[in-house]
Write a protein that binds this DNA or RNA. Sequence first.
DNA 1: CTGAAAGCGCTAACAG
DNA 2: CTGTTAGCGCTTTCAG
Lengths: 341, 341
Amino acid sequence: MKKITLKKIAQVFNVSVSTVSKAINDSHEISDDLKGKIQQYAKENKYRPNKLALNLRQKKTKTIGVVVPNILNYFFTQVFSGIEKVANEKGYNLLSCISDESYDKEVKTLEFLGGNTVDGIIISMAEETQFKNKMDHFQNLVDERIPLVMFDRVSNEVACDKVVVDDYEAGYKTTNYFLSTGCSTVAVVTAIDHSSVGRLRVEGYKKALDEANIPYDDKLVVRLDKKDDLELRISFLLNYKKVDAIMALDEMTAVEVLRIVKNKGYKVPEDISIIGFTNGKLSRYVTPALTSVSQHGTYIGEAAANILIERMEDNSNRDFSTLTIKTSLVMRDSTKKRLDQ
Amino acid sequence: MKKITLKKIAQVFNVSVSTVSKAINDSHEISDDLKGKIQQYAKENKYRPNKLALNLRQKKTKTIGVVVPNILNYFFTQVFSGIEKVANEKGYNLLSCISDESYDKEVKTLEFLGGNTVDGIIISMAEETQFKNKMDHFQNLVDERIPLVMFDRVSNEVACDKVVVDDYEAGYKTTNYFLSTGCSTVAVVTAIDHSSVGRLRVEGYKKALDEANIPYDDKLVVRLDKKDDLELRISFLLNYKKVDAIMALDEMTAVEVLRIVKNKGYKVPEDISIIGFTNGKLSRYVTPALTSVSQHGTYIGEAAANILIERMEDNSNRDFSTLTIKTSLVMRDSTKKRLDQ
DNA sequence: CTGAAAGCGCTAACAG
DNA sequence: CTGTTAGCGCTTTCAG
């Protein structure tokens, strides 16, 4: 009881393949009698058209490729789930790949997806790619006119639609919030200093300091390597100066910093306030619950998918756009109240 | 600069398509001279074979379909990441879909995947499917000889390879552990009572009670509905009887129970011990850190992928197997020490 | 109303 | 060494 094809049905009824095709697609060209019989037979034998053949013929696959650097990161799974939602609504399927933050894997994945496997691609760059700043594999897609949407970690060397978070403003806003609660020595801990996203947040941080006439001190920015011992680095930081606020650029780091700081006997937020990026479940359930920057991942996913689908279904070559999503601060218990309230 | 095909290359060199095909595939049948020229031209023009055509011809896609009920659940993302790892190693791609715990969506997804889109499928059933107990869509796949591996939430009505967690033993082990630390009134909170998995855990729980000569009390098993108010249900539970241990059947529930219990002024683990299923990040970072049942998600994913790939590449129709993965208890701070230690 | 033919892009058996 | 032919499964003119 293996796959049944139009050909086989045609043999059964002693008609041509094209007749069967039309019958099954309910064409008016076929007599109701024959149509009925064939349709019934098809149903009984669970005929299912071969998608491959269909796609080959119609030169589209109705599927969109998604590439994320890391699925164990809550932000990306949120985005993913947003993409999934609208893709599903609009009848598209998702072919999803993980680059694992590796440049090579990203290149391979994109090559695969480029081979007529999908009609369009949504991607956030691997960290290594941003570090090496090699964009040829994206350029290839663009050259081949494969609709492409980049989100979060994007490059302005690539001409395509983009959806980004306003990370600069987020860093600025966060720092300002610390200052407005009476903190004066704000440190930053980043594990993503190779990514544009991380850099922008630090820039925003600098701007806020500048506006408050606080000199920028590079020693207060802790840049983590993969194998760095966070605990050690935090010790150094706290010995270096009496910091009273820490902005952590991803959720895991924020949670870890919280743990370490508590372990060392500091009270959060009385002694040290903490704000983390990515408003995931961890932030909510940790004690004290972390004030965090929400990047609205699900929304970003939805937006990216909508933009891509529009681009795919629309031939008018309108200009590429960059959609910037504002973040919002979700207040919880790891920060003090504002002084003026 | 759109897609370039064999045909076009053939025209350029005034040779036949098959010659080009052979040249590009580095066949010894072609003169080194011609081969060189064609290969170079292909490279320069970024020739990439049309995967669709290839797949149609070779009747395989080198991709495997993965269907999980919910990507925001840490267990599934772990499994997913395990699958991804071995698929990648063995040169397979992943087409991943989310059933969103919905029967209808699962049926649709499987229909899609069945249409020659993938060579094999790995799936964990939607809760609704388990509830309705309708398995026709799986049977279809089996009938069509599409290799299928079910994991975690499986049905024994479907003849295929399976990878399951030893949930019965996990429930048993967990309950026993509570008892061994001096707890005597163990409650269960489940949000997945419709799934085989949840049921088995409760069965194991009953067995442990039975062996300890503790009568089973159905009121101690809190079965949650989507819209149930957990806080309220826990209040009832705690008023009903002085429970000193709670086993929560998924991570979110465990964390919520912990929060609620702490809020009510109970000390964890002194007054009430808690163990949750799924050993994810949440469990680790919550205060106190939750003792949890690890289902070894990544390992399950790897196993499922390996079994599927073997089945796909191997034509010998060997019998279907069910691999059972033992859980382990990860000790942290939400439980007391064993009395005998 | 039904069928023959062409073609999507590619490979492979078989001639030449 | 290179080309011809056939075919994967399906749709779509265009004839009949």
